[in-house]
Structures are given as C-alpha cells and as structure tokens.
C-alpha cells in the first residue's frame, strides 16, 4: 500500500517526490547519480527532522495510518499454524476482533487481535476496529479456552474505542467489557498484551489486562481519544493536539507511569515504513517477555497480574484534611 502523508509530513513527502522523479529518469551519467545521492541525503534529513521529534498528537496520527501494520498482519508475520475460531456462542461473530490458536516461536498460544482495514470494504468488515459486545464475549470465550488448556494469551490492541451504537448498548456493551476485565484476573496462564496502534479507553482495557503490556513507540493509550477529550474539556475537537499533550498518552508517558513494561521501537517515521522490522521488533520483545512469564506457576501468574493492577493510582494520604466526624 502506498504511503500516505499528513500535513506535518509535507517536507518528507516533497523530498520523496523529488527523489522519485529523479529515479524515474533513465539516466546513468555521473551528474545524475550525484543528484540522486543529494536527494537521498535530503530525504534522510527531512525524515530525521520530522520524525526525530514527534509531538504526542503526531504520534496519534501515525498510529492511525491505514497502511500501518494491523493485528492481522502481526499475527500473520509472527505466528504459524493459525486457526481462527468464530462467534460468541450467544449472538454473533464480531469480525472487529480476530480470535484463534497459533504457534508463536515454538509455543502454542491463543491470539486475540483488534482488526482495522485499509479500504472501505475492509473498514466496514472490521467496523473500523470498534468491537460490539459479542466481540468482547468472543474474545472472552477464546481466552477461557486458553486458560482451560494452559495456553498463553497474546493480545494485540488497536481500537479507537468500543463501538458506541444503539445495538451495542442494547446488548450490554458495559457488561461485556466489565466481565472481560474481571475474568482476565482469574486466568492462570500468561497474558501478554501489545498496544500496536490505538488504545482507546474501555475498548482497549476490555481485552487488555495483561501480566505484561508492551507498547509500540508510536502507539497511544488513554482513557479517551484526544478528539473526545478536546470536545469535552475545550468544547472543540480542534484542540485535539493540546488534549493529546495533556492526556500523557504516549508510550514514553505510559512507561514512566508504570502502565506498560516495555516500549517496542519502530522504524523511523512509523512501523509502516518498514513492516518487517516492526514485526521482528515486536516478536523479539514478545518472545523475551513470554519466556520470563512461562517460568511462573499458574498461581504466581494470577497473583502477579493482580498485584500489577492493584498498585495503580496516585493519591495522597492527607490526614490533616480528612472529613471530620
């Protein structure tokens, strides 16, 4: 898929266009080769200038690029023997989440991935990565099979949020998410989550309770999207860049807040520039973490997961100001 550019990437796009045009000329003389070399250097400079210093909102935009590798791409690249399973055994099969069994570097696993598409037809099939209650229930059913058969769970998170629709509400979106979160605390197998793109709110945590959570360098994870936050707190979605800043939603922020264990580096400019490197980086980090988790006993796995989330929060024990009475 061709690479798309946002406004802030204009200098990169221009440098790339110039280079492409020069390369298209069928010339072999030395002057031309020098010209190409010069243009290549300019492109590299532009890329370093733009991508070496991304703002939080620019990372959000990169995380949303349609050509960015999606969950199904990571599953294809990183696993073998993949066998998809379908349906929540109650209502329907939600295609926004891909569930199945697979081998990951020699280990039989269950994989769960929130899918996004690249064009209209795919987008509609995957509902833009927004799951319905039956999606959360399908994921839970699959994860319970993992727990039953002692298989580690690999989760790929990439969602702009749980689907906010009438039927989703009627079928109990809140119940589906809440139940998933609670049940994920009962599992005695390793749960390894990777935020590969967007980690929006309840839609993400609804499959995101892990012993370890990895996050790609340009992924974001927050209680609300920057646009949602801006339209509420600034009363104008145009303030999304400011909201992205305030929400502390980058991988670096989440590492510092001890919400994620590791940042997985991406190729300069984003995973889509060099998907194979992105797959290898995530695969290696997953393998390293999984190897450690597999050393824990079933009870230790459950307890470690509990302890990790039990410890989250920031407050003061303010004895002077407690309510009198």
């Amino acid at each position: 898929m061709a690479i798309s550019y946002y406004e802030f990437e204009k200098p990169v796009q221009q440098a790339q266009d110039k280079l492409d045009k020069a390369l298209a000329k069928d010339r072999q003389d030395e002057k031309h080769l020098r010209e190409i070399q010069k243009l290549e250097t300019e492109l590299e400079q532009a890329r370093h200038e733009i991508y070496g210093n991304l703002t939080p909102f620019q990372r959000v935009l990169i995380a949303r690029k349609p050509e960015r590798p999606h969950a199904q791409d990571y599953i294809k690249a990183l696993t073998t023997e993949f066998q998809e399973i379908h349906g929540d055994r109650g209502y329907a099969d939600d295609k926004a989440v891909l569930c199945g069994f697979a081998q990951f570097r020699g280990v039989s696993c269950v994989v769960i991935g929130q899918c996004k598409g690249r064009e209209v037809k795919e987008n509609l099939k995957y509902n833009f990565g927004m799951m319905h209650p039956e999606g959360y229930r399908k994921a839970l059913r699959t994860m319970k099979l993992a727990d039953k058969f002692g298989l580690p769970v690999l989760v790929f998170i990439d969602t702009p949020g749980a689907y906010p629709g009438v039927q989703a509400e009627e079928r109990g979106q809140f119940e589906a998410i809440a139940r998933n979160i609670r049940e994920m605390f009962t599992f005695t197998v390793p749960v390894l989550c990777s935020v590969i793109g967007e980690g929006a709110s309840g839609g993400a945590i609804g499959i995101g309770v892990g012993n370890v959570v990895l996050m790609l360098e340009n992924a974001w994870y927050s209680v609300i999207s920057p646009e949602g936050c801006a339209s509420i707190l600034w009363r104008d979605a145009q303030f999304a860049p400011q909201a992205a800043e305030a929400l502390k939603l980058t991988a670096q922020d989440l590492l510092e807040l001890k919400i994620v264990e590791e940042i997985v580096p991406e190729p300069l400019g984003g995973a889509h520039y060099d998907p194979d490197t992105a797959y290898a980086n995530l695969g290696d980090a997953m393998q390293r973490q999984l190897t450690q988790l597999l050393k824990l006993s079933p009870d230790e796995l459950r307890e470690q997961r509990f302890a990790k989330y039990r410890a989250v929060g920031e407050w003061e024990e303010n004895l002077a100001e407690q309510t009198k009475g």
Binding site: A178, R182, E183, V223, I259, Y309, R310, G313, E314
Partner: peptide, 26 residues
C-alpha cells in the same frame, strides 16, 4: 465515568476495581 484528568491512571481504576470483584467471587 472515568476521570479524564487522570487519563490512563483513571482507566486503570476500571481494572483495579474489577480485579477485586474477581477476588470477591473467589
């Protein structure tokens, strides 16, 4: 719902409180 001004820390309270619901179940 969750408090936006504590961002991810608020989101994680969903997990923390639900973790205790699992303990109550047990």
């Amino acid at each position: 719902g969750a408090r936006m001004m504590e961002s991810i820390l608020s989101l994680m309270q969903m997990a923390k409180t639900s973790a205790l619901c699992a303990e109550l179940d047990r």
